[in-house]
Simulated scan of single mutants.
Amino acid sequence: MKTENWYDYPQYFDLVFRDETDLEVKFFEAAFAEHASGPVRRLLEPGCGGGRLVVDLAARGYDVIGLDISKPSLAYLRNRLRRRKLSAQLIHGDMACFQLEQPVDAAFCTFNTFRHLLSEQQALSHLHCVAEAIRPGGIYILGFHIIPLDADEECTERWKARHGGTEVSVTLTVREFNRARRREQMRATLTARRTATARVAARTIRCQSDFDLRLYTVPQVEKMLAKVESFEIAEVYDFDYDIESARDIDDDLTDALFVLRRV
């Protein structure tokens, strides 16, 4: 069986995380009300991928912009929006260097997408671009993992999801972990199985991709954010997405969700 690139199958990635969408979006709306000044209607997701959040927020009446460097992901998202008779502005571009014609009220980037920016220069360029794209008083919700002092250098995570006649399983494995270089190499393996029906044949697709992510400790995050004077930390949460449960920035913070406010 041929092994495909999982970035060419955004529909399966979205299926795995679709159960998280409602929880995330409800948190976004609570954060808009709690931490942004003025109404929030115009949104940006840099690194939107297949766009599960773009679609959900567009369905709720927001004016959403999705930006991604993957053409297959944007094509898939465009078709999803068309099928549901929704609209959103889609931009093919690099999240490390972009510019919008008009400012947005808020932006969001979760599930470690930010860590694909592998250098300090790229990360800071991204943060400055987002800050320029958000109006004063608007917010940026940025979520990514921070490595604890006792991080397991041989970590493996697994997810499964089913929708209709399709079952998807994902295994994410750390192949290399280097604190000095601030890199971890990941291998993502995805298997999608579709059962046969009267209208479609059975199908199995196996995808495997290796990619690097940048490592962050709490002091490294604090040092980086201090260099972006256009943002202030409004509050910090974790991946429980509970607006009532703010977190301290300390060594126990690993699944970090920063709400950055544009000053």
Rank of each mutant, 00 (worst) to 15 (best):
A196F: 03
W159D: 11
V174H: 01
L172G: 11
Q185K: 09
T195D: 14
R182T: 01
R187K: 10
W159Q: 11
E184M: 07
R183S: 03
V174P: 02
E154M: 08
E167F: 06
R181E: 12
C155I: 08
V168A: 01
G165A: 10
T166C: 09
A161M: 06
D152W: 03
L172N: 15
R179T: 08
R187V: 06
E184L: 06
S169Q: 15
G164Q: 14
A180D: 13
R179H: 07
E167M: 13
L190I: 14
L172V: 13
V170K: 04
T166G: 02
H163S: 15
Q185I: 09
A180G: 06
E157V: 10
R162A: 13
G164R: 09
V168Y: 00
C155T: 08
A161S: 14
A196W: 00
G165N: 15
E167G: 07
H163G: 12
E184S: 04
R158M: 10
M186E: 02
G164P: 00
N178G: 00
G165K: 13
R181L: 11
V168W: 00
R181M: 07
R194P: 04
E157P: 03
A180R: 12
V174Y: 01
A180Y: 11
E176G: 10
D152H: 05
G164V: 05
R187A: 08
E157M: 11
E176L: 10
E176S: 13
R187M: 11
A180P: 01
N178T: 02
G164M: 07
F177H: 03
R183N: 04
E154C: 09
G165H: 14
S169R: 14
L190H: 00
E184C: 04
R183T: 01
V174L: 05
R175G: 09
E167Q: 15
R181A: 13
L190W: 01
M186C: 04
D152L: 07
M186I: 07
G164Y: 05
K160G: 08
S169C: 14
D152E: 07
T191N: 04
V168S: 02
C155D: 12
A180H: 12
E176R: 14
E184Q: 11
R179A: 09
A192L: 01
E176C: 10
D152V: 07
W159F: 12
E184T: 01
T173H: 05
E154I: 06
T189L: 05
T156M: 08
G165D: 15
R162H: 09
T171A: 13
S169F: 12
R181H: 05
E154F: 10
R194F: 01
A180I: 09
T191A: 05
G164L: 08
V174C: 15
A161D: 08
R183A: 00
S169I: 14
M186R: 02
M186G: 01
R175P: 04
L172A: 13
G164F: 07
